[in-house]
Amino acid sequence: MEGEPTRIMIAVNESSIKKYPHPSISCRGAFEWTLEKIVRSNTSGFKLLFLHVQIPDEDGFDDVDSIFASPDDFKQMARRDKARGLHLLEYFVDRCHELGVACEAWIKKGDPKEVICREVDRVHPDFLVVGSRGLGPFQRVFVGTVSEFAQKHAECPVICIKRRADETPRDPVDD
């Protein structure tokens, strides 16, 4: 439709180096690239859609032994996870508001590869932007890659942004 903003979904995740609520190097780079190369000064022509997918732990307790868990423990952890996810999204939403770019943000739980593609099907963005750690073939086998999966399965164009060489941590699996 004429006059409607271009809707760009950006998948965001937390840093594995700094932990919550800091954005990962890759998703922060994808966001900054989108602002610099696509949005530029046309802030009213775009709407950014931020999706953060939280990966649930098998028992929900990260490193804590769940055998001693009470129902209140589960409720407390659910509140903590939600707060951490909201805090992460706050970084992106605040930046958009500073620049005058319309945005939405939400959290889902599950396998990021599947959830991102399912949300693309549900929301129908004009395209999806994902960050990439630039893992080699050996590392991809063990770590997996959300960006490759999205490129193959998402029902919209996918732009994959590699992190810059100067941003690569000592262990390339970190982000």
Rank of each mutant, 00 (worst) to 15 (best):
S16W: 02
L135T: 00
I159E: 01
P21W: 11
V158N: 05
E119G: 02
A154T: 08
D62S: 11
R118C: 03
E36S: 13
K75Y: 12
S44L: 05
L99P: 06
D65I: 06
Q76T: 09
I67Q: 00
L48T: 00
G134D: 03
W106D: 04
A150G: 12
G60A: 07
V64Y: 12
I67Y: 05
D72E: 14
D72M: 11
P125G: 03
D121G: 11
D73V: 00
V123S: 05
V143Q: 07
T43K: 07
N42F: 12
T6E: 04
K82N: 08
P5K: 03
F149V: 00
F92I: 04
G110M: 08
D174F: 02
L35W: 14
R133K: 15
L88A: 00
A11M: 12
S66T: 02
M1G: 15
F138E: 00
E98G: 07
D111L: 07
L99R: 10
P137S: 04
E114K: 04
P56R: 04
Q139Y: 06
G131N: 03
T145L: 06
F142G: 11
P137Y: 02
G60C: 09
D81E: 13
H87T: 06
Y20S: 13
V101Q: 07
D94Y: 14
G60V: 01
C103Y: 07
G29N: 11
H87I: 00
E98M: 06
V64P: 02
S70M: 10
L135C: 05
T168W: 05
C156T: 11
V129A: 06
E4D: 13
